[in-house]
Amino acid sequence: MSETGRGAPAQSATADREVVVSRGIDAPRELVFEAFTEVRHLSQWWGPEGFTTTTRSFEFRVGGEWDFVMHGPDGTDYQEWITWTEIAPPERIAMLHGESRDDPNAFESVLRFEADGAATRIEMRAVFPTKELRDEAVEKYHAIEAGKQTLGNLAAYVTANVRKGAED
């Protein structure tokens, strides 16, 4: 079950392995893209509601890595690791996301940033190695709702902080 944010299921060869979430953000796409590419921003909003993020290392370039821990509101720590596989400013970022560099269950994610007048439509598409891993992410970790909350946190952060800074 893929959520496109527009009420229609995604149709593709990998649809049974995907989670897709999108949202409009009232800010130019360059600012939304910047919030994803600079750790000073990313660590402030990344993750679902109630989570915080501690970055251990961050290098935003193709082949670079983001090694971090997400701290859940219940005190649970989640080890996370991302390597950037494609960067096309300010339109697209592709990455491999898992618990560690050699995680066999790591999934691919593509972020698309589409200008919508003075606003931005962002889409996060995660493709898991198997349908079972996708189903586990949705059922056990609430991936669709968590993705929506993460994009909500991004929207709130960009409009309150990044955009304000650009206007100063």
Rank of each mutant, 00 (worst) to 15 (best):
L42N: 05
L42D: 13
S43I: 11
Q44G: 07
W45V: 01
W45I: 08
W46H: 14
G47E: 00
P48N: 08
P48C: 13
E49I: 14
E49D: 15
F51I: 00
T52Y: 00
T53W: 05
T54V: 15
T54L: 03
T54N: 15
T55A: 08
T55Y: 08
R56P: 02
S57D: 15
S57R: 07
F58W: 10
F58H: 07
E59N: 00
E59R: 07
F60R: 04
F60W: 01
V62I: 07
G63E: 13
G63F: 07
G63W: 07
G64I: 04
E65A: 10
D67Y: 15
D67C: 04
D67Q: 04
F68G: 07
V69K: 13
V69A: 04
M70R: 05
G72M: 08
P73M: 09
D74A: 06
D74N: 11
G75M: 14
G75W: 15
G75F: 10
T76L: 03
T76V: 13
D77T: 04
E80D: 14
E80T: 05
W81F: 15
W81C: 04
I82D: 00
T83F: 06
T83V: 03
T83A: 00
T85I: 06
T85C: 04
E86H: 09
E86Y: 01
